[in-house]
Design a protein around this nucleic acid. Structure first.
Lengths: 190, 190
DNA sequence: GAGACCATGTAATCGGTTACATGATTCA
DNA sequence: TGAATCATGTAACCGATTACATGGTCTC
């Protein structure tokens, strides 16, 4: 019952508004989202699986044509699964194996779990990143002397990437925690 | 004949010195390399495939015991494949879907293709990153107004991550191009 | 003698990618 | 009328992950 990143992305997007497979492909093709493939062979089987698990349901338009258009929306179970996927604890893996997955969850989080949970999530990312950076720096201090030039530069690249993520998290946390920003946005949306 | 990242990592490590499956697992388990799984089910089948393709060959120690130790080394074909894998042109994908793969190639590059090629590679990374950042900033300018807070922050996280990579590339290129650094290292290794 | 570490493998599963396949509609 | 866009699917393949399986060796 663990969602794959693609499944999470699809559920999150369908949760925003009902969408067809084609509409989802366009999102992946035209926005800098998660870097998922927009190929049909990727998305239609994934939607089929989600529908098979009862997490989404299709409203069929233009039935009895050759290719009826299927607009998917979340079921109660789907909304639940999305919530649990987003609420998973922040692990070391989440900040190390590509920050994309963390950002994917972050983007969908406010609408599903609310602002408070999102602030906590970003704070947890920041904490885990800080720990991971400390570990990498420890490794660097211990082994930099005996490492050839390229691996040492590679390690530094990693450390600097994680530092950039940590700086972002600190700033995002402050932005999100500022009530004024939320209020202004809320006003705008009316 | 396209190498997977795992295959490239294995070939690169075996190219440095002959290694057994277990030794390779230990590298993945104890160094911050590429974040590959160190599970046996991951590495042994991969080694088998590489051996099947004639890219590596095993020197068997303790034959006729139950589990003979196999130390793999590169064949001529393997060294060739590694060289071609490293020499692939820098594409947009290489800098966008996880910088890890680029860093993996970077780490093995000097020993196989030499310093000049490595400098070129880093310069190409820098150029491609600069282009990609420009594209993301363009997208940001065009859509930031209508984007909700979380996606906008997510996009900023991406941009800042790529900026960090670009700064690293610029610095690494200068470090690598400085002949003095190379010479000093070369002296040390004697 | 128990536990950690060395050491290699197989089987089942699962999901993503590529390539293939089809056809309607809209606009220049 | 031809190209681009809308729109949905299947089939074959491949490789990574997880769990399972085995047993030797070294050290306390």
């Amino acid at each position: 019952m663990e969602l794959s990143p693609l499944a999470g992305a699809l559920l999150g997007l369908i949760g925003q508004e009902p969408r067809s497979g084609y509409a989802l492909r366009k999102v992946f093709a035209t926005t800098p989202m998660g870097v998922f493939s927009d190929s049909p062979g990727s998305i239609y089987p994934a939607l089929k699986r989600l529908a098979g698990n009862g997490l989404i349901a299709a409203r069929v338009e233009n039935a009895r044509t050759l290719r009826p258009r299927k607009v998917y929306e979340l079921t109660a179970g789907g909304r639940n699964a999305l919530g649990r996927w987003l609420a998973q604890p922040v692990t070391r893996d989440l900040v190390t194996d590509g920050f994309d997955l963390a950002m994917l969850r972050f983007v969908f989080m406010p609408d599903v779990l609310g602002y408070a949970a999102t602030v906590d999530f970003v704070a947890a990312l920041e904490a885990e990143l800080t720990r991971h950076i400390a570990d990498l720096e420890h490794f660097h201090r211990a082994h930099a002397r005996e490492m050839p030039l390229a691996p040492r530069l590679g390690l530094q690249s990693g450390i600097e990437g994680f530092r950039a993520h940590a700086r972002w998290a600190a700033r995002a946390r402050r932005t999100l925690a500022r009530p004024a920003a939320r209020e202004r946005r809320r006003e705008k949306q009316r």
